[in-house]
Nucleic acid binder design. Structure first.
Lengths: 218, 218
DNA sequence: CAGGAACCGTAACGTACGGTACGGCTTACG
DNA sequence: CGTAAGCCGTACCGTACGTTACGGTTCCTG
């Protein structure tokens, strides 16, 4: 479901093990305490000196950015290999993407990271929002669109624009889950609920864009 | 599209005109500068003393909460009167809700308010998230469900659970718009795009839950 | 072992900001 | 006109935190 991958070789590769430990500590703190992430707290938790934090990451924003990048390099929706595009395997692929995506957005880490990125997007001083978006929603689109296109070529799907089709799928999967989680509500995303939601979203998407029946509605 | 209504009579009614001016100033500041809302800045902008701010709103959180409530009392999706539930008027109602909702979530004010509420949801010290959610997503559900139920009674819609049907509609309308706006991305929500999105979402929802054809997918 | 680099722990500094105090101005009222 | 209340402007205080500085320790290298 989740796979470890390098995000930007030239960026992440540079990190020493020690520094990765520190970013993990910052990540845990971010999840636990929200945006109350102080340099002192990170130093205490990671058992390093503040001086080292400043040497390695420049300033607080640098540490935050590095932390977000670090998490982005870890969490990645796995690409589903699209061998033979029959209807069953297509549906399985879609459902798998939906499941993974729901798992990601309902994870503590994702919620915490999105929260801090959104806070910072307000006073647009860094590009945390862009990073999160690139490694979240846009990465998902990048993985999913080839699947959609393959389905279209195989005559299984019907749509004009892959981007629009993707956004429909996105909406059917995520619905109000992410915004509710971000706002502190708990929409009960258990394993079972995720399974059910993924299946429902897939069925709905195929109902809208499946080529079998008379597909209507864009 | 947008209508002014009292949110909680016993809360909002108490505000003097002066205090409403101050909350408007705070709101404008919130939209412009993000969460950098300082008491001094509000006092300066509203041309009042900090002492008055503390007398009227208690502390910073109180001011923030009052500001969110104040905005919540102003923005409200208008209920569409559901006189005769034929298919055309049902579709019009749905499209109207979709349009209003897209306008709300893509407005500067909504983005700013959701950002501050999300920030605070991290270090859960107040209930801004709950307020925003109640007056946003749940208020919409409250307005829309009667329409859905009426459509179902009239044999125009088919669904098991109004809540689930609402969430499907919500997903089809909002898609990735809100999260992208919150993260600082600009998904180009012009008037025309909103119009188009609302029409598309309505068509898709009717394709899924309209009772005319064989309705599949939950 | 000598020398130095890297790093830890902690103290110290500067600033921003929440919160409070106070003097002066306007308005209401007897 | 005297008095009191409400409010503005501003100065002030305390604290939290980002940032810097420094002495002591570990560890690597020649």
């Amino acid at each position: 479901m989740i796979v470890v991958q390098a995000y930007e070789q030239e960026e992440v590769q540079k990190l020493t093990e020690r520094q990765k430990d520190i970013l993990d500590a910052a990540l845990r703190l971010l999840v636990e305490d929200g945006d109350n992430l102080t340099m002192a707290a990170v130093a205490r938790r990671a058992r390093c000196s503040k001086e080292s934090l400043y040497k390695w990451f420049g300033d607080r924003d640098g540490l935050l950015t590095a932390t977000v990048r670090w998490q982005a390099s870890k969490v990645r929706v796995v690409p589903v290999d699209q061998g033979r595009p029959d209807l069953v395997s297509l549906a399985e692929s879609l459902e798998s993407y939906a499941r993974d995506w729901l798992k990601v957005i309902s994870s503590d880490t994702s919620v915490a990271l999105n929260r801090v990125a959104i806070s910072h997007a307000g006073s647009g001083r860094d590009k945390l929002g862009e990073i999160v978006l690139q490694n979240g929603r846009f990465a998902l689109a990048g993985r999913l669109k080839p699947v959609l296109d393959a389905g279209k070529r195989a005559g299984l799907l019907a749509f004009e624009d892959a981007e629009t089709a993707f956004r429909t799928f996105f909406g059917l999967v995520a619905r109000d889950v992410q915004i509710r989680l971000l706002l502190g509500d708990w929409p009960g995303m258990t394993e079972a609920a995720i399974e059910e939601d993924a299946a429902r979203a897939t069925k709905q998407f195929l109902a809208l864009h499946g080529a079998g029946k008379g597909q209507q509605a864009n």
